[in-house]
């Protein structure tokens, strides 16, 4: 599909934008991303193999895979915030006077911070409900908060990354 930012460096060429220095190392998100992607591929592949060799399937893998995909979206999404890779219209924000460009970059980062800070609070409330009413998962039947509790945690991480970007964009180049 299509994204304004290049998905990956062209093979054999160095990365065009080296990562900016961040206070909290991006390696945290990067390693989590790699582990989750690998798990997603391995679980699904194992399911195919097991089904074809034993005509059994693990009904539980679907629930775990969907959970891992949500973790992926939030964790790798957090790194994408720090790298400023999220899809946006660059036409006006990345052209024109430099002061305006910087102001718009800060505004964009702040809006990202605002949304995920709000999402952190709201999803914490949903987790509270999940615990209070003892909700269980439809696939495996485990407490739902085991899955949902990561939403506020990772929303805080994304908000933090957005705040970091906001601060970095405020510095004189």
């Amino acid at each position: 599909m299509s994204l304004p930012e290049l998905p990956d460096p062209i093979p054999g060429e160095p990365e065009v934008h080296p990562d900016e220095v961040t206070r909290v190392p991006l390696a945290i998100e990067d390693w989590l991303t790699v582990v989750v992607m690998a798990l997603l591929a391995l679980i699904t592949f194992a399911n195919v193999l097991v089904r074809y060799f034993t005509s059994q399937s693990f009904a539980w893998t679907e629930e775990i895979s969907v959970f891992l995909m949500i973790v992926l979206a939030l964790v790798a999404g957090s790194a994408a915030v720090a790298r400023n890779r999220h899809i946006r219209i660059e036409f006006f924000a990345d052209n024109g006077p430099e002061a305006r460009q910087r102001a718009l970059a800060r505004f964009g980062a702040f809006m990202m911070f605002l949304f995920f800070a709000v999402l952190a609070v709201l999803s914490a409330r949903v987790v509270y409900d999940d615990i209070r009413f003892g909700e269980t998962s439809p696939g495996i039947g485990v407490p739902v908060w085991w899955y949902t509790m990561w939403m506020p945690v990772m929303s805080v991480a994304i908000a933090g990354r957005a705040l970091g970007l906001f601060i970095r964009r405020g510095r004189r180049p």
């Binding site: 990956d8 989750v36 992607m37 690998a38 992926l72 999404g77």
Partner: peptide, 16 residues
């Protein structure tokens, strides 16, 4: 590592 990280990040951008 690079393959998984980059495709993970690109997917996250779409999924979000």
């Amino acid at each position: 590592f690079t393959i998984l990280r980059e495709s993970g990040e690109l997917s996250a951008v779409i999924l979000l």
